[in-house]
Design a protein around this nucleic acid. Sequence first.
DNA 1: TGACATTTGTCCGTATGTATA
DNA 2: CTATACATACGGACAAATGTC
Lengths: 227, 227
Amino acid sequence: MSKYVDIAQQLITMIEAGEYRPWGLLEGELYLTRLFSVSRVTIRKALSLLKDKGYIHSRQGSGYYVNPSEFYKEQHLTTLSDRYANMNLSSVVLSFDVIDASEEMRKLFQLFENSKLYHYRRTRLVDDVPVTLEETWMPVSLFDDFSESELYGSVMKYIENRNFVISHDFKKVQAVALNSESARHLRKEEHSLSLQIIHKVYLLKSVLAQYTIETQADNQLNALSVR
Amino acid sequence: MSKYVDIAQQLITMIEAGEYRPWGLLEGELYLTRLFSVSRVTIRKALSLLKDKGYIHSRQGSGYYVNPSEFYKEQHLTTLSDRYANMNLSSVVLSFDVIDASEEMRKLFQLFENSKLYHYRRTRLVDDVPVTLEETWMPVSLFDDFSESELYGSVMKYIENRNFVISHDFKKVQAVALNSESARHLRKEEHSLSLQIIHKVYLLKSVLAQYTIETQADNQLNALSVR
DNA sequence: TGACATTTGTCCGTATGTATA
DNA sequence: CTATACATACGGACAAATGTC
């Protein structure tokens, strides 16, 4: 683990523990370099990471300020695994099949004819309350030992444990009205409005590894931009 | 303008001009330091900016790679002004009033009783096609010379020209079905689904300057996360 | 208003670590 | 194994914004 990531995590722990008031001042760079016995470059990288994650912001000539928790907590538009990190996450598998790739899917994944795809649907639950419904396609040619049992854990971790490196997650967000089946699985009213996030997960060298349609139970996502 | 921002913009111009193939290799840090006659630190800051904006990604030991244009073009989840930068953006003002702040709004803006708010609704058009419908509240106490004429340009620029500094834009995204009036203004079918982005725009020192409900004509937003 | 100290932002040179080809 | 390229880290210098006296 690099020093700056380690320092960033320590600072995040302190912020999440509520050791700073919202909008309150964080210690300055000079103080932190002495506290952690590292150079200013390293402290600045750590603080830059905290900025990107929405924990703090800074003003030249003034200092670093801690953001209110709504800026970094709750439903952020990141990967699912990030979003529900450290939560009691479980799965219910609705279907798992190996199917022939349609022409559309062959084009998307850049596969030859007669290629096969894994196709599964599952709900993800936090403390036994459904939070998302996922429908996913993955090429069999990339993952020869994939099986239904992987669906009860993190598929991302399965991919990374197979020595693949995930490089991008490109997302489209759109509004949908839940059909009766989706509503049932998410324990919502039929026709209620929700957000759908369509993921394209890429490995290195532009290889598309996963196409996922994620239907949220909650009709809300948060995001933050800082000047 | 700082060197690294200048360099970043030059590189962005080249990428947008199509001088690199999607997923293609960018010149290395060493080459770029010589090309621009700056240090490696500066080149890395410029490239880091390009990464954040979704133009490129990098792999240690390998190089910097140019992303396909869908990663950085189109409807990204940023501020409206950023999103439609360099486009032929115009406005139709639907209403402009000074109103008494409701209790809810007083709480939100942390105002005293009997405070006034500007309240306006406008559509924003790109090449005469409506792209968003905005409903906005701003405290009169902050902006004493605000007027309807500002609504035909960028309100953000008005704020910044008044020597205020915008520090955060916190956003919630949610799905909505257009009511008949919204649909008419956006030239969509009634009840069609759309995304609504609720903005809280903060100035320095946690001062909330603007609360905006932005209803999109398109039911789509893009985002990218990079490992 | 102006001078000054403080703090973050930018930039340079250099060295070493680590992943890739 | 080796060369290459990005990642991390150090120390130093000056610029620019801020807050205060």
